[in-house]
Amino acid sequence: MDFAGGGGGGGGGASLSEMYQSARRLLLSARDGVARVERLASAPTSSSYSSSAPLVGGGGAGDPAAAEEIQGLCAQMDRLWRSIPAKGQRDLWKRKVEQLSEEVESLKETLDKHSFRQRKRILEAKERAELFERANGESSHVLQIFDDEAQARQSARTSARALDEAYETGVAILQKYSDQRDRLKSAQRKALDVLNTVGLSNSVLKLIERRHRVDKKIAYGGMILTVVLMVAFWRLTH
């Protein structure tokens, strides 16, 4: 199907055929490169595929620049087929060049899609790395929170021990007050017995009873004050 017309057209036909074959080889090579990329992307181990790798390695025919080279050849062939004198050959080369141009356009669209996916993978990889770094920072923050909580629990246990000691001290003080009250009652009874024996007046006895009531109020007041102080100390420590 090569153009073999006479005169100057024959030389043009041979050049056109060579450029067409070269363009077809580049196109097939580019398609093979795209197919390899698609197999890598759809393979089960595609997660290990490097998102920073080129679309088709080595800048070969699968590189987007190859499509531009084929388009340049198509532009040259478009000028050449117009100079073919024979209408049948001219129409044939027109269809072949147009078909090749359409295939190159389709290839460019595929390459653009793969390029977009590659950029998207790179962006996702960067976002994952940033999230991982951020997660590590947040883990350190969580560990710090746990340390703070442990220190707070230790402080609470220390305060609880101090409160228990204060409670035991208060109980001991109240016990002493109770013992003193019992001794006072015993002394009062003895005093009353003595006074009754010596025949003191009722007014003296009433005075002693009022004194006893005052002493009792003082004792109860001391116990209440001790309890209030213990409750206030417990609230301050918590």
Rank of each mutant, 00 (worst) to 15 (best):
Ala61Cys: 06
Glu69Tyr: 03
Val56Glu: 02
Trp93Lys: 10
Gly60Arg: 00
Trp93Gly: 04
Pro54Glu: 12
Cys74Met: 09
Pro54Cys: 03
Pro54Met: 06
Pro64Leu: 01
Ala66Asn: 05
Trp81Met: 08
Arg79Lys: 15
Asp91Phe: 08
Trp81Thr: 02
Glu69Leu: 09
Arg90Val: 09
Val56Gln: 00
Gly58Thr: 02
Asp91Tyr: 09
Lys96Glu: 14
Trp81Gly: 03
Lys94Ala: 13
Pro85Met: 09
Leu80Val: 12
Gln76Ser: 13
Ser83Ala: 13
Ala75Cys: 06
Lys87Glu: 15
Val97Lys: 00
Trp93Ser: 08
Ile70His: 02
Arg90Asn: 10
Lys96Ser: 11
Arg90Pro: 08
Ile84Val: 15
Gln71Thr: 08
Pro85Phe: 12
Ala67Phe: 01
Cys74Leu: 07
Val56Gly: 02
Lys87Asn: 12
Gly59Thr: 06
Gly72Trp: 04
Pro85Arg: 13
Met77Gln: 05
Met77Ser: 05
Ala75Val: 08
Ile70Leu: 06
Ala53Pro: 04
Ile70Tyr: 03
Ala53Glu: 10
Gly72Ser: 12
Pro85Gly: 15
Ser51Phe: 02
Leu55Asp: 04
Ala75Thr: 12
Gln89Arg: 13
Leu80Arg: 13
Gly60Cys: 04
Lys96Gly: 04
Ser52Ala: 13
Ser83Trp: 07
Ala61Val: 04
Asp91Leu: 15
Asp78Ser: 15
Glu68Ser: 11
Gly58Ser: 07
Ala86Asn: 14
Arg90Gln: 15
Arg90Ala: 12
Ala53Cys: 05
Ile84Phe: 10
Ala65Glu: 08
Ala66Asp: 03
Glu68Leu: 11
Ile70Phe: 03
Ile84Gly: 01
Leu73Trp: 06
Pro64Ile: 03
Val56Tyr: 01
Pro54Gln: 07
Met77Gly: 00
Gln71Tyr: 01
Arg95Asn: 13
Asp78Phe: 09
Gly88Leu: 12
Lys96Trp: 11
Gly58Glu: 04
Ala66Pro: 00
Pro54Asp: 09
Ile70Thr: 10
Gln76Asn: 07
Gln71Met: 07
Ala61Asn: 05
Gly88Pro: 06
Gln76Ile: 09
Glu69Lys: 09
Gly60Thr: 04
Glu69Val: 07
Leu92Ile: 10
Ile84Met: 14
Val56Phe: 01
Ala75Tyr: 07
Ser83Gly: 11
Ala53Tyr: 02
Trp93Tyr: 15
Ala61Tyr: 00
Gln71Asp: 10
Val97Asp: 01
Leu80Ile: 12
Ala61Gln: 03
Gln89Tyr: 12
Asp78Val: 03
Val97Trp: 02
Pro64Cys: 05
Gln71Lys: 10
Gln71Val: 05
Leu92Asp: 13
Gly59Arg: 08
Ala75Met: 07
Leu92Ser: 14
Pro64His: 03
Glu69Arg: 09
Ala86Gln: 13
Ala75Leu: 09
Gln71Glu: 10
Gly57Leu: 07
Gly72Val: 07
Gln89Trp: 12
Lys94Tyr: 10
Arg90Met: 14
Ser83Pro: 01
Pro64Trp: 01
Val97His: 01
Leu92Gly: 09
Arg95Trp: 10
Leu55Tyr: 02
Ala66Thr: 05
Leu73Asn: 02
Arg82His: 11
Gly72Ala: 14
Arg82Tyr: 08
Glu69His: 06
Leu92Asn: 11
Ala53Asn: 06
Met77Pro: 00
Met77Ile: 05
Pro54Arg: 03
Gly57Glu: 11
Gln71Phe: 05
